[in-house]
Write a protein that binds this DNA or RNA. Structure first.
Lengths: 224, 224, 224, 224
DNA sequence: CATGAATGAGGCTTCATTCAT
DNA sequence: CATGAATGAAGCCTCATTCAT
């Protein structure tokens, strides 16, 4: 028969913030999941960082996995509609669209904790099949469709050469994956140096990809 | 066909195996660490896969972390001497040396479980600071020195333009990191397609890097 | 057909319900305690089924145990006065009185959720000593006194043979306990068949008991 | 990184009793399940009573439910073969066989903790559907088949009147259920008195059942 | 009065590590 | 050397009870 501590500071903590609780918990969870991974993050830590107790977290999210899914929804899957609309509205060249897409990915995802979720799934998907399936359906799939739409748009307009669209999708994805890893990996790799500039990296990769898309044979790199 | 009584055979096997126990444990550990990550791998599983009991594992490795370090030594750090010697012995152009380095990284590391260790450190280093420090000292640092030596060689010979060597190191490292992640991540990302060919990817990246190293200003991708 | 605005209606309902809240809570609690047992029933469920919030339940009952006691009072202990009065008013034979008592036990208790309370105490009393003591004092004791009064009445009038009254009490109680268990146990035991008729069972047991009470030696079942 | 306490008494506890551990755990579990029920028994308590730690229990039984199933197997289901064989070997009258069956049920089950399992399932089956199904298949079903075999034997030989066999099964089962409850219920009900003698009770019930089986119409108890 | 957000003790289960044999 | 039984800290989740609004 537990009796909640009635210490005065407990009372202070009790300020009702029902509306903002889920958001605070999601923010705390995102930070910790990105920092430590899914398995290594303890729900109690998430609760603490959000300023509530362990039990409170479970009022809002029925399990650790559901908490994670909610984080994914907020950080990534819930935003595809908006991104898709942007593509629809675009009236410029497909090259510009691709460049815009990749640079704004960096600004809105890569350079935020949201890309930490991508890293996390790359790292832990194998150990949590249900979460992996969820991520595949809610994030990976929509992402690929979006990239393909952009590429197909260029192909349809004749702006891009008739390339293997799957291959091109990889060319786009590879640097993003690298950046997601680079941003959220500890100093193990040479991140100490200030030399690396992700924005320049993105720009260079865009340049390279566009070169490939305009030429016929991007796959034969060996000069005679 | 004679049916040898399994007893002497088993004894022979046991005697033989005494010598190879550590190797078998390391092989099992490498596989499992790569498959499931460090934290998610249970030592008992490692022992089982190596055909010994849990206690035996601790005779050879004083803790799970030490086991990991031994795996890292065998898979990566122990091989830098040899790789360094190869660089020393090289008499060709620095461009060829860089190409050789990256393609043989793929053959000897990237395309094997050894690159799983790289992925694993990128994923879990934060949760195991001691292991991270070990990896930094034994793998990341030697790796960077090796890459820099190759780049410096080209700079010294006048073959490469006078580039920021840190930046160039990133250009080399980025695709390797991507490949390590790509190889060891589940189908979450677009690995379902057969389109992607890592060897071509390496070749293309080498080509791009060399273009950058020969030109003066690799960082300004926007053509006028 | 008029469509009454639900607001005044709801208000009326609320006003009306203020009076009946405890009753609705007790009804919900009885159902759930019987269905799932005391420990396995969550107070929130009780509140929900009564259409109020968890906090409201605690306005009426200071703890889960008090809620249970109130259920017991309403379902069982509060009714002994009436039953006792019936015995007082009875002018027929003691055999008829015993038969009447047992058959109306089935009608008023056994065949209702009230017998679920009996089952529940048999099952969980050990884990809740205070509740057990309460039940003992408020239900078990009055029950036994009532049965004894009936038996004593028959002895005093010479209608029943001079039997061990404790033993006879068991003969009366045993079938009632069986029926309480039978009614509230899941299909684990042979309840699938429609064969069993509790009323006939009661009638048969009454018959047997009366046979025993009229003869001298009800305890020696072995015929010569 | 837990380090087991190396206190001297811990060493004493470490006496290897691998062979007897499961039995000790099963005995402790049986006692506690019977005493407190399944849900209210904590695995740590079981372990403690068996003289081991919480973790050790899980070396032998993969979950609390599996522990329970093992208890059921040892206490009840594993013994039906033997009982069935006894019925096969019986050469006497079916009346004697029925009497023997019921009295030896008391000696071997009813009067031991094994009947506590029966009580427990009657009480908690609803809350643990999987366990209920297991018990139904492994205990309740075999029990009924055995009772029916005995009754059918009497019918086939002409010794028993042609009665509804389902109904007769209830007549046999009811007193056993009562006794199981009576034995394992706390002093809530009149068990304080020494008056009740389960063996006499069984004998009396056997007598009554046999009377019913020999007569044509056991179901009409009301004399004219 | 009524609400329902918040609490935190407690239960089941996992797993790295130890050590008697 | 090798074994594997034993340990116990730690993690996820539940739920009776409280209390600010």
């Amino acid at each position: 028969m537990p009796a909640p501590s009635s210490t005065p500071d407990a009372q202070a903590k009790r300020a009702r913030r029902k509306e903002s609780r889920p958001g605070e918990l999601l923010a705390a969870a995102l930070d910790l999941f990105v920092e430590k991974g899914f398995a290594a993050t303890r729900v109690e830590e998430v609760a603490q960082r959000a300023g509530v107790s362990k039990g409170t977290l479970f009022l809002y999210f029925s399990s650790k996995e559901e908490l994670f899914k909610a984080v994914v929804r907020q950080s990534l899957s819930g935003r595809f509609q908006e991104w898709s609309d942007e593509v629809d509205r675009c009236t410029g060249s497909s090259a510009d669209l691709l460049r815009y897409g990749m640079t704004s990915w960096w600004e809105r995802v890569g350079n935020t904790n949201a890309s930490g979720i991508t890293k996390l799934m790359l790292c832990e998907a194998h150990n949590f099949p249900e979460m992996a399936a969820f991520y595949q359906a809610e994030v990976a799939e929509p992402y690929h469709l979006l990239v393909r739409r952009i590429l197909q748009r260029g192909l349809d307009s004749g702006e891009f050469a008739d390339t293997d669209i799957d291959l091109a999708t990889y060319s786009v994805t590879a640097p993003l994956i690298f950046l997601a890893m680079w941003k959220h990996s500890p100093s193990t790799h040479p991140c100490t140096t200030e030399a690396f500039d992700p924005e320049k990296y993105i720009a260079a990769q865009v340049h390279i990809i566009l070169n490939g898309l305009r030429a016929r044979a991007p796959a034969d790199p060996r000069p005679p």
